[in-house]
Amino acid sequence: MTTIQNADQATIVEELAAVIVANKAFLSEIDGKIGDGDHGINMAKGFGRAAERIHGKDMTLDAAMLVLSDVLMSEIGGSMGPLYGLMFEDMAGALTGREVIDAATFSTMLNAGLEGVRGVGSAEVGDKTLMDTLVPAVAAFDAAQGQGFAAALRAMAAAAETGRDSTIDLVAKIGRASRLGERSRGVLDAGATSCCMILTTLAQSVQRRLA
């Protein structure tokens, strides 16, 4: 099988949340080097709250993503609230009404999420933001689709990691770290790092369910 059911997949979002919550201190630590050190706190607060609300519920993947989106946009704020909030809202929108999720649907979902982020943020690849992870990861999934869903997920995760690591050598062009100019070079971007956690966990979670 190269599909997953959309129904009863709240646990996928719970798994994303678990990784973010477990990395709360790490994300804050890297954010603290060039930002104000609250990335992990606010991300863990939002993802943790969403996980509590969907725990044990029989929800489709899109419904669970909408809960996460709503918490991020209406309770967390900051920069990550609207960026990830819109990403998950638009990802969910692409899944609405689908019974099964195949590679093509997953691609539509990823691209919708990417467009959601573009709709509110203004960053491009190379600006040292989550776009450095998200854009190549989505492109890698699309490029590897012909090799099957599982292979495309692996390609997405690998590209996300490469994208995350690319931010080390970049100078921030946007957001709080951009005020540092050259001083922002040499450290990971916190948003690119959390985005990588989300995408790699998503890839693993979906792969495990590809029965």
Partner: peptide, 12 residues
């Protein structure tokens, strides 16, 4: 009102 050093939500 936002979290400490963090923008309020769009909803707020």
């Amino acid at each position: 009102v936002g979290e400490l050093f963090s923008s309020p939500t769009a909803k707020s």
